[in-house]
Design a protein around this nucleic acid. Structure first.
Length: 156
DNA sequence: GCCAACGTTGGC
DNA sequence: GCCAACGTTGGC
């Protein structure tokens, strides 16, 4: 089975690549995704062993900080039926979960942060969703070529 | 803080 | 099933 490549967004003020690196086990459950397209990528296409670019959004310098590996495939997101969670959705329940999550684990940190600006300036990356205007998906597929080029730009 | 782009909701 | 209103995302 061919490996898939992804880009996942996080706001560093909420959860940064550095937070993941420092976490015990360097693993985080990727909860809180509340968009059907993003959910479906996780649920139907993400596999253990897939790699993802960890992207910082809504911050002073948006861009890719490093690489994570998918270490657990999609399972129901319990925050969706936790009334105290900011991600609560009354239409989701343990019996009938609407939202799913995966686990991601720190893989490698870029030697140089790859800014959104740098991504935009590279002609070979012009098809990446993240550089396109109005593209807000928090989980996006990237091609193997894009993934390896961005890794190279990051100094890996 | 602004605002464009997009997704979702809900009345009809 | 349409579409206007609203909420959210995210770069700047």
């Amino acid at each position: 089975m061919a490996k898939n490549y992804w880009l996942i967004k996080s706001e560093p003020s909420t959860f940064s690549f550095d937070d993941l690196k420092k976490r015990t086990g360097q693993t985080e459950g990727w909860d809180g995704v509340r968009n059907y397209q993003a959910r479906n990528f996780m649920r139907y296409h993400m596999q253990v062993g897939d790699l993802a670019l960890f992207y910082h959004s809504s911050c002073a310098e948006p861009g890719v900080a490093g690489i994570v590996e998918i270490t657990k495939s999609a399972y129901p997101d319990p925050s969706s039926w936790d009334a105290k969670s900011p991600y609560f959705d009354s239409k989701s329940s343990p019996d009938n979960p609407r939202w799913f999550m995966v686990n991601v684990t720190f893989k490698s940190e870029f030697k140089n942060f790859v800014s959104l600006k740098a991504l935009k300036e590279n002609d070979n990356l012009k098809d990446m969703k993240v550089v396109q205007k109005g593209q807000r998906l928090s989980i996006q597929p990237v091609t193997r070529e894009e993934f390896s080029l961005v890794s190279k730009m990051g100094g890996l």
